[in-house]
């Protein structure tokens, strides 16, 4: 999933301050799962903002809605009947959702309420960790199912580096060394010979190195 974290309340208060009527829009997908911008978080942020402006004795109206997905235009259309009742939109979706609303409603200011962070997985309740960097040329098949691009601090394709100590990364002792994980996994699979193979230099053009990407499925488009 795409993970995100709510921006500090102080920043959000500042960003909505110029407006009187706010449409707070959540998303039912990734940000719901990572507890950043689903229906519950929308309600909680709405409550917090309302209380702040009540305390300031400042007129402030907020309307809440959570869309099935903010990254698909058909769901954005649900905002059409209510968009004019707001001076600005505060979106709790990832950056994709914020941009889709901004694209659809060109005259309406759209403010992000969360910082979109990474593509990750749940490690346990309340903990999410980065797992994929979207490089566009997956190497998981040769690295034992552990991604060296997303999980090695240096994105090394032939690791580990000298900073790997007792399975931990020199960047932070809480970070597992991806190449230690890869070695452990290859060992468990009985495929240690794969570790001996040098992975050639990666063509980063399939990732962000090639500029903004687009997928076109001719049979569907």
């Amino acid at each position: 999933m795409i993970t995100a974290e709510r921006k500090p309340i102080e920043d959000l208060i500042q960003s909505v301050s110029p407006y009187r009527r706010i449409l707070l829009v959540g998303c039912n997908e990734c940000v719901t799962v990572c507890s950043a911008g689903g229906r519950k978080e929308v309600a909680l942020l709405s409550s917090a903002l309302q209380m702040h402006f009540m305390k300031e004795a400042k007129p402030f109206e907020i309307k809440e809605i959570t869309l099935e997905r903010q990254c698909d235009p058909e769901y954005i259309e649900e905002l059409v009947p209510i968009i004019d009742q707001a001076d600005a939109v505060l979106s709790m979706a990832c950056g994709c959702g914020v941009q889709e609303i901004a694209r659809r409603f060109k005259e309406k200011p759209v403010l992000p309420a969360v910082n979109t962070t990474f593509m990750g997985a749940s490690e346990r309740q309340g903990v999410w960790a980065e797992r994929c960097a979207g490089c566009g040329d997956c190497v998981l098949g040769v690295t034992g199912g552990v991604c060296p691009i997303a999980r090695c601090s240096k994105q090394l394709l032939n690791g580990p580096c000298g900073g790997s100590t007792r399975g931990k990364c020199e960047v932070d002792p809480d970070i597992d060394c991806a190449w230690q994980l890869i070695w452990d996994r290859l060992k468990a699979l009985g495929m240690t010979e794969r570790y001996e193979e040098n992975i050639p230099a990666k063509d980063w053009r399939t990732g962000r190195g090639g500029g903004p990407r687009k997928i076109v499925r001719e049979d569907l488009a």
């Binding site: 309302q50 209380m51 702040h52 402006f53 009540m54 305390k55 004795a57 400042k58 007129p59």
Partner: peptide, 9 residues
């Protein structure tokens, strides 16, 4: 304080 502010409004 939220209630006080609301009363002010």
């Amino acid at each position: 304080p939220a209630r006080v502010g609301l009363d002010k409004l």
